[in-house]
């Protein structure tokens, strides 16, 4: 027995499967239905059935290996043309079930592919030191009143922090605006904790943009030129994970 793992859906007329190994070390292939083609892989029953996948989600090492392989196939599939990535761990009984799913959701996939055709996804993260900023002048400290001096010092710290956060937010918005003028769509994500990125600065913008390939040079120039005084991190191009990912049925 074997199962069918789905990586992505793309235009059916391109039927050259991605030349990279899949999640089970298998060679991906294409299952076509009408104008659509699903990039799939034949995977073993064991480890990829419901119980096997549930166990994999608990096992960070295995999950990482699955996610990397899935990602690599989607990237390769997207290098040839428009692609709608399918979420990790979408598995069907056999090819017939994949064909049925493609037919049933054809409108949805075609709309997603139309939305991202000729476009790629770029990630933009902005990091800024939210503590720097504002007036650095020491508060007037009456020497004979240590408690008052302490409170004034804390007040100055607080005001400086507020000014720094305000400035960081303004920088983030200016980068988002500059990027947005050359993008067709944007998704904003929750800001990540500084410890995850291993940086001292705080993340102030975590967004991803869908950019027309004809606009990429302008987009990149606008993003890297924006964000005065902050660190701007541009990643990509990616397949349009954030704009065309199909939910499992």
């Amino acid at each position: 027995m074997s199962l069918v793992w789905v990586y992505a859906v793309r235009d059916g007329d391109a039927d050259d499967p991605p030349a990279v190994s899949g999640v089970d070390g298998e060679r991906p292939r294409v299952v076509a239905a009408g104008t659509l083609g699903a990039v799939v892989g034949t995977v073993a029953d064991e480890g990829f059935d419901e119980a096997g996948l549930a166990a994999a989600m608990e096992d960070l090492a295995r999950l990482e290996a699955l996610a990397r392989a899935h990602h690599a196939v989607v990237v390769e599939a997207g290098s040839a043309g428009a692609v709608a990535p399918v979420r990790l761990a979408t598995v069907f009984r056999d090819d017939e079930a994949v064909v049925a799913m493609l037919r049933e959701r054809a409108d949805e996939f075609e709309a997603a592919l139309d939305r991202v055709r000729g476009r790629r996804e770029w990630g933009v993260k902005v990091y800024a030191d939210t503590r720097a900023g504002g007036d650095d002048s020491p508060a007037p400290a009456p020497g004979d009143r240590p408690g008052t001096a302490y409170l004034l010092r804390r007040k100055a710290d607080r005001d400086r922090g507020a000014a720094g956060r305000e400035r960081a937010r303004a920088v983030a918005e200016s980068v988002a605006d500059a990027a947005g003028t050359h993008a067709v769509d944007v998704r904003r994500f929750a800001l990540q904790d500084a410890r995850l990125s291993g940086r001292n600065e705080e993340m102030v913008l975590n967004a991803t943009f869908l950019v027309d390939e004809t606009q990429e040079a302008e987009f990149r120039a606008a993003v890297t030129g924006a964000g005065d005084g902050a660190t701007v991190e541009l990643t990509g191009p990616w397949p349009p994970f954030s704009f065309a990912t199909a939910d499992p049925p």
Partner: peptide, 9 residues
């Protein structure tokens, strides 16, 4: 203010 400040300090 002074008393508060001393307490917090």
């Amino acid at each position: 203010i002074e008393a508060l400040g001393v307490g917090l300090m």
